[in-house]
């Protein structure tokens, strides 16, 4: 613990977020999640546990789902990040939205964007997934409303709808 507080040096960082190149100044301790939410105002990824335990902050890093709270922003320099806002611009995601709504795959909705990002990757990687596959693909995501049965139904429905 230091009595004297020194301003922390910021680092210049360039990366791609939702297909657009960004140059951002961050403190080395800034997490990817904080950067997305507080500096880029991309608030679809949610803070809930701050340590990679719940999946609410899930984004795609080079197309693979990761916990944005568990990565420092400086770790993803020059990489490609896609948030749920970015997915919303992609073909195929609207079917996931429609399927979640049709099967009521969420209640309070706070964990829902994280589930939706994971569902996108699950459907892309396992087009033939059954309910059990889906459950294990989403196992890192906590929904405290426990809308799990409806979420699984929503992803199964999305599998039918995504071309």
């Amino acid at each position: 613990m230091t009595e004297q507080h020194k301003p922390v040096e910021k680092t210049a960082l360039s990366l791609s977020v939702n297909g657009r190149q960004q140059s951002i100044q961050v403190e080395p301790r800034t997490t990817l999640l904080e950067m997305l939410r507080e500096q880029l105002d991309l608030t679809g990824a949610k803070p809930a546990c701050e340590r990679g335990e719940c999946g609410a902050c899930t984004v795609l890093l080079d197309e693979r789902p990761v916990h944005a709270c568990h990565l420092l922003a400086v770790q993803v320099a020059r990489r490609n990040i896609v948030t749920v806002e970015g997915l919303a611009e992609r073909p195929g995601f609207q079917q996931i939205v429609d399927a979640f709504v049709a099967r009521d795959g969420g209640q309070c909705g706070y964990c829902t964007p994280g589930f939706a990002v994971a569902a996108y990757a699950c459907i892309r990687d396992n087009p033939g997934a059954d309910a059990q596959h889906i459950r294990w693909a989403l196992v890192g995501h906590i929904c405290r409303c426990n809308a799990y049965d409806s979420i699984v139904a929503g992803v199964l429905e999305a599998l039918k709808r995504v071309p």
Partner: peptide
Amino acid sequence: ALRLGLAEKVRGEARYTSDLK
């Protein structure tokens, strides 16, 4: 009836308190 507001929540558009600036 379909849950009102759920589509916005799935897309990450729904703002919760800690999303506000």
